[in-house]
Amino acid sequence: NQASVVANQLIPINTALALVMMRSEVVTPVGIPAEDIPRLVSMQVNRAVPLGTTLMPDMVKGYA
Rank of each mutant, 00 (worst) to 15 (best):
Pro33Leu: 09
Pro50Asn: 10
Leu10Phe: 14
Val20Lys: 13
Ile11Asn: 02
Glu35Ser: 12
Gly52Ser: 06
Val60Phe: 04
Val26Cys: 06
Thr28Arg: 04
Asn46Thr: 14
Ser24Gly: 13
Met56Tyr: 07
Met22Phe: 06
Gln2Glu: 15
Arg23Tyr: 06
Val30His: 12
Ile13Phe: 10
Met56His: 07
Asn14Arg: 06
Val20Met: 14
Thr15Cys: 06
Ser24Arg: 09
Ala18Phe: 06
Arg47Gly: 05
Met22Lys: 00
Ser42Asp: 13
Val60Pro: 01
Ile37Asn: 00
Glu25Asp: 12
Met21Val: 03
Leu40Lys: 01
Ala7Glu: 03
Arg47Pro: 02
Thr54Lys: 04
Gln44His: 12
Thr54Asp: 02
Ala18Leu: 14
Leu10Gly: 11
Asp36Glu: 15
Asp36Trp: 07
Asp58Thr: 09
Pro29Gly: 03
Ser24Ile: 09
Ser4Tyr: 03
Asp58Lys: 08
Ser4Trp: 02
Thr54Phe: 01
Ile13Leu: 08
Gly31Tyr: 03
Pro57Leu: 05
Ile32Val: 07
Thr28Val: 12
Val60Ile: 12
Arg47Gln: 14
Asn14Thr: 05
Pro12Gly: 11
Pro33Asp: 06
Ile32Leu: 05
Val5Asn: 02
Leu40Ile: 08
Pro12His: 11
Asp36His: 13
Val20Leu: 13
Asp58Ile: 07
Ser4Leu: 02
Asn1Gln: 15
Gly52Asn: 14
Ala18Tyr: 05
Met22Val: 07
Asp36Ser: 14
Glu35Pro: 07
Glu35Ala: 09
Leu51Gln: 15
Val20Glu: 14
Leu55Trp: 00
Ile37Ser: 04
Ala34Leu: 03
Ser24Asp: 11
Ala64Glu: 11
Gly62Gln: 07
Thr28Pro: 02
Met56Val: 07
Val49Cys: 05
Glu25Phe: 05
Asn1Leu: 15
Arg39Leu: 14
Met43Leu: 13
Ile11Met: 03
Lys61His: 14
Met21Lys: 03
Met56Arg: 06
Ala3Asn: 09
Pro12Asn: 08
Ser42Arg: 08
Asn14Ser: 08
Ile37Gln: 04
Ala18Cys: 15
Glu35Phe: 10
Asp36Arg: 07
Tyr63Ser: 03
Asp58Ser: 08
Thr54Gly: 01
Ala64Lys: 14
Leu40Ala: 00
Asn8Pro: 01
Leu19Thr: 12
Ser42Phe: 09
Val20Phe: 12
Ala3Met: 15
Ile32Glu: 00
Ala48Glu: 11
Val6Ile: 13
Ile11Cys: 03
Ile32Pro: 02
Met59Ala: 07
Val45Asp: 01
Asp58Met: 10
Val30Cys: 05
Lys61Asp: 11
